[in-house]
Simulated assay, not measured.
Amino acid sequence: MTEIRTPRLLLRRWLPDDDLGPLAEIQGDPAVMRLVGDGAPRSLDESAEDIERWEEEWDDEGFGLFAVELLGSGELAGAVGLFVPDAPARVAGHIGIQWRLARQFWGQGYASEAAQATLEFALQDRGIDRVVAAAAPDDASSMKVLHKLGMTPTGEDGGLRLYAIDLTEFEG
């Protein structure tokens, strides 16, 4: 089982019986989901499908979205990880990074901490040399995380700002 420990977080594979309720609560929050996918909150069934899809990606690709757990409390804080986006066109088919955290964990550095560990995992454990990301122009928080990670703007597509990082130059 793939696990990564950071000073405050455990990034791990999904435990559907334990994680479904908390993930559904996170993904049911319109503020959390407004910039993810179509922007709609997800139901319990949709969250179950997400966990199933993410676990299949782990099995098929060797990477996926991690469950992000707080080390101190064991509480599920959200999801972060690697995926292969199908849009926008300029990043489709490349390996991307994304995250979503429960609102009560915003502004505490958890997204940066988890994303940094994910990029280190991509390079060191999976040999991935480039990762992309897309952010809505009004998503200042995500763009701040992308800049902290050392990702550089590469243009725009589909109304999103695109970023990339060459992990061979990554200073994790």
Rank of each mutant, 00 (worst) to 15 (best):
E55C: 07
Q116S: 15
F83A: 10
A79V: 05
Y110W: 07
E61L: 15
R90P: 00
D138L: 06
E52D: 14
V132A: 14
L76K: 03
G107K: 14
A133M: 04
D86Q: 15
L119W: 02
G64K: 03
V91C: 04
E56W: 09
A77N: 05
V91R: 00
T118S: 12
E52N: 14
A89P: 07
A117N: 02
A133E: 00
P88L: 09
V84M: 10
T118E: 06
L65F: 13
G93E: 09
P85Q: 04
I97R: 01
E49Y: 08
G81S: 02
A89K: 10
T118C: 11
G72M: 06
R103W: 11
A135D: 01
Q98N: 14
I51M: 01
E46D: 08
G127N: 09
F121Q: 01
E61W: 13
E57L: 12
L82K: 03
F121D: 00
W54K: 11
E56S: 11
E69M: 07
E113F: 05
D86E: 15
F83C: 12
A122M: 06
F105H: 14
R53F: 05
L65E: 03
Q116E: 14
L101N: 02
A92Y: 08
E113P: 01
E113I: 05
E52V: 13
L123H: 02
S47W: 01
L123I: 07
D59R: 15
S73L: 09
A136L: 11
E46F: 03
G81N: 02
R100K: 14
G127H: 08
D60F: 12
G72K: 10
P85F: 00
L82R: 00
A111S: 04
A115W: 00
F83D: 09
Q108P: 01
A87M: 12
E57S: 15
G96E: 13
M143R: 11
E57D: 14
F63D: 00
Q98H: 13
L101S: 06
A122P: 03
D138G: 08
Q104N: 09
A111H: 04
R103I: 13
A114P: 15
E69H: 11
R100L: 07
L70T: 02
D139S: 14
G62N: 11
S47Q: 02
D60G: 13
A102E: 01
G62Q: 10
D125P: 09
G93F: 06
E120Y: 10
M143T: 08
Q98L: 11
W106H: 01
P85H: 01
L101E: 04
S112E: 07
L119N: 00
D45G: 10
S141V: 10
G64C: 05
R126T: 04
R130F: 05
R103Q: 13
A136M: 12
V84I: 15
A67P: 07
W58C: 07
A79D: 07
A77V: 03
E46K: 07
E52W: 13
E113R: 04
W54R: 09
A117H: 01
A48W: 01
A115S: 13
I51W: 00
G74S: 08
P137D: 05
W106K: 04
E61I: 14
